[in-house]
Design a protein around this nucleic acid. Structure first.
Lengths: 249, 249
DNA sequence: CGCAGAATTGATACATCTCAAGCTGGGTGG
DNA sequence: CCACCCAGCTTGAGATGTATCAATTCTGCG
């Protein structure tokens, strides 16, 4: 059993799992969980590690348990576009596909709950709860991708930055279950270059626009990564979105 | 029974349906088809008509039978981004969602096979074949959306145009089951403005880049819409994609 | 301390947008 | 039958936003 560069996390019980109610297993009954438990194993990766390269054979699918990973596409000449940001409970891999379509990289230390692909596929056809949940999650991802297409195709650099900050702020708030009262405070999980790859910009433009938002009092920065948003509505104004948007799901 | 602006096409049998083997019903057995048949109805729309507005209540889901439709998002100030191109067999609507997230517009005359949403959802949980096929189609759409994100975020105007032409050419070839020998000939199903909305460009830039590709001998034009591609590899060179890309599915 | 990666800032180049003027082709009505 | 019209398209000239290239400046860490 070769332990390459990855660390192995302690296996723990699905019942205690932090993503139990949101991941692909969310709908499973106890007996279904037991079957999943038999084919699952945990894997840990260090920040910066690329877990999967586009074109690799994939013999597993997985859920992000903790940490953040990215999905990126790269062109021959090196231009890169991030096409997905994977947060805890998000699903990686495609049942029925043998080869990875994107690079998957850990931007923070990362723990994944992996399922061997073959048994997972068999389980999927026998337990509709898994397929149902996966469909729901895939539809959500498709909506997110389409919102991102609007951003990439039509928004200005400033709107792109504001949109990304708003998304991170909102997610962070929902994770902490914080009331939207008072200042929203969070850490950027991405470097400037990663933000650029996500937004279809250069890192210099990202840096300039963040500075501009800071000068205009929309955000405050403590260090490079720590962001304070005192007036969330003001930030939303900068995103270019409808004021009532984002409540469809 | 108010027949608004839409024409009603003659109802026909699923067995004769041109999209029978590719649509959401592709995996259904005869008995499942019978149930679907009971809740389906056809609807026709004229080119240019918007079938669904973002925010509308949706009481049905549907498959495109013939014709082409688009999914678009619009910002408050009128900036528009197309986020989907719906071809025969593609699925419209999201089970479990009450309200449309995008505008759906017919760019050609269009026939849709509609299912009342409630019964469709019930059928979905009782017949896994439908959910399975829908998952597969949604995953394909997600891949397409992600490829489009690369285009929107990182490709030049010329590469965007070449990519769109290549996609249309390829689809047309696969529809006609034509050998890739000789010239590929097709009609653009979109106006310059629609192409611009798809590509995140202005219509002027679309027009200029098409002219440039014509001057460079990559494509030939007969009229505004009819395109001849004598050397498909030369067109592919202009897309910026890997030469071996697009064979993952 | 000092190094290296990350980020900022500046000056300039350039791709695409914007605004504006004509062109084209097919349909319509006098 | 011709003149006109109009939507769709093309082309031009100039403006502008972002990329590119190039210095610095931070920041954390060995």
């Amino acid at each position: 059993m070769a332990v390459h560069h990855d660390m192995h996390a302690p296996v723990h019980d699905c019942a205690d799992c932090p993503i139990r109610h949101r991941a692909v297993c969310a709908r499973c009954e106890t007996d279904e969980l037991i079957k999943l438990e038999q084919i699952k194993y945990y894997r840990s990766y260090q920040a910066g590690q690329t877990l999967i390269w586009s074109g690799d054979r994939m013999d597993f699918v997985a859920s992000v348990v903790t940490g953040i990973a990215t999905l990126t596409q790269t062109m021959e000449d090196g231009r890169r576009q991030m096409v997905g940001l994977l947060l805890p409970s998000d699903f990686v891999g495609r049942p029925g596909r043998a080869v990875a379509a994107y690079d998957v990289t850990a931007t923070t230390d990362l723990v994944m709950c992996c399922f061997r692909k073959k048994p997972f596929e068999e389980l999927m056809s026998s337990t509709p709860h898994i397929a149902q949940r996966l469909l729901e999650m895939t539809l959500d991802e498709l909506d997110a991708a389409r919102e991102w297409m609007l951003l990439l195709g039509r928004k200005t650099a400033r709107e792109k930055i504001a949109s990304l900050l708003a998304i991170i702020a909102r997610r962070d708030a929902s994770l902490k279950l914080k009331a939207p009262k008072g200042a929203i405070v969070f850490d950027l999980p991405l470097t400037r270059e990663e933000m650029a790859d996500y937004l279809g910009l250069t890192l210099e433009t990202v840096s300039r626009q963040i500075s501009a938002l800071r000068k205009d009092g929309i955000i405050e920065l403590e260090g490079k990564r720590h962001v304070v948003v005192r007036n969330f509505d003001a930030l939303m104004e900068e995103t270019g979105d409808d004021s009532d948007g984002g409540f469809l799901v």
